[in-house]
């Protein structure tokens, strides 16, 4: 049963990651924390892209709402993390529900552009609402619970939250709801005929994506001890979209792979040359030309080669 294999492999990966701090490299722990957060962010976007076929150009909005909400509640209002973090997720989800209500009436590029428009409004609010968000100076000095200020404990916290969130997303995507979403993606009209309210399904997916994006944002803000308006800007939305496409959008693990690859490439190329855009651009170009299904296509090709199923 393939599902059992997947489960074992995932559990093994989590255990392996949990052992990482034993290697003693502070840098490796920090970098992995970043990758985990981006993986969740990309995965949340893929609920929308991979499972409904709708591309969002504005996913950074929910990331930012989650990040700012958690940061502000922790710091300005001194709320405990146990309330701030869920509140961040709920608010991101609520905003996604409102925005989604308008967006799901549209499809294709019109859908994408409307998500972009809303996201830029969120950016505008973060920019201009200086008293609350710190404006373009950013919101720095986030107050973390003492037990999370250490990089190893924050890593474990992130690992735990991301693992649970990914498991939850897996369950959602493989539930009846998830399967219906795939049906909506494959044939919107026919799924409608069999009595599914396709618009409502897409709306639900939009809200789920926003909520989990908000969770990723909250983790991100706490990790950096700061949120900045750049985190809500459209370039950030483009970045996470690129992660999903790079990994492969019609697979559950694709976006995780894409997030890890793009983030690590960006980090490592910057270490070796100030012409990192050229190196990164060439690598991406090769991937696009050779692997039109994204990195996950490579995985399945290798699998096919070695005769595994």
């Amino acid at each position: 049963m393939p599902q059992r294999n997947q489960l074992i492999a995932s559990a093994a990966l989590v255990v392996l990651l949990a052992l990482l701090p034993l290697a003693g490299s502070r840098y490796a722990v920090d970098l992995t924390t970043e990758v985990l957060i981006y993986a969740l962010f990309a995965l949340s976007l893929n609920v929308l892209i991979g499972f409904t076929g709708n591309v969002s150009f504005g996913h950074a909005a929910y990331f930012a709402i989650g990040g700012y909400t958690c940061a502000i509640l922790l710091t300005t209002y001194r709320w405990p993390l146990a309330i701030s973090l869920p509140a961040a997720v709920v608010l991101a989800g609520l905003v996604a529900a409102v925005v989604g209500y308008f967006c799901v009436r549209l499809t294709q590029i019109y859908f994408a552009m409307l998500t972009l428009a809303f996201a830029m409004l969120v950016w505008g609010v973060a920019f201009k609402w200086k008293e609350v968000t710190g404006g373009d100076d950013g919101f720095t000095g986030i107050n973390l619970p003492a037990m999370l200020t250490n990089h190893v404990s924050y890593f474990y916290f992130t690992l735990a939250v991301v693992t649970v969130a990914i498991a939850a997303l897996w369950v959602i995507c493989h539930s009846a709801f998830g399967l219906t979403l795939v049906a909506v993606r494959e044939n919107n009209v026919r799924t409608g005929f069999i009595g599914v309210d396709t618009r409502r399904m897409r709306w639900a997916a939009f809200t789920v994506a926003g909520s989990f994006g908000g969770l990723a944002g909250a983790l991100f803000g706490m990790y950096h001890r700061g949120m900045y308006i750049e985190n809500a800007f459209w370039t950030e939305s483009a970045q996470v979209l690129i992660m999903v496409l790079l990994g492969g959008m019609y697979s559950f693990v694709g976006p995780i792979l894409g997030a890890a690859t793009l983030h690590l490439l960006q980090v490592f190329t910057n270490q070796y040359t100030t012409y990192w855009p050229t190196v990164l651009g060439l690598i991406l170009l090769v991937i696009v030309m050779v692997l039109p299904d994204g990195l996950i296509g490579l995985v399945s090709r290798v699998k096919a080669r070695w005769g595994k199923t």
Binding site: L246, L280, L282, L285
Partner: peptide
Amino acid sequence: QLLFTFAIVLL
């Protein structure tokens, strides 16, 4: 194709 044009932007 979007990923492709992004690579072109970088280059």
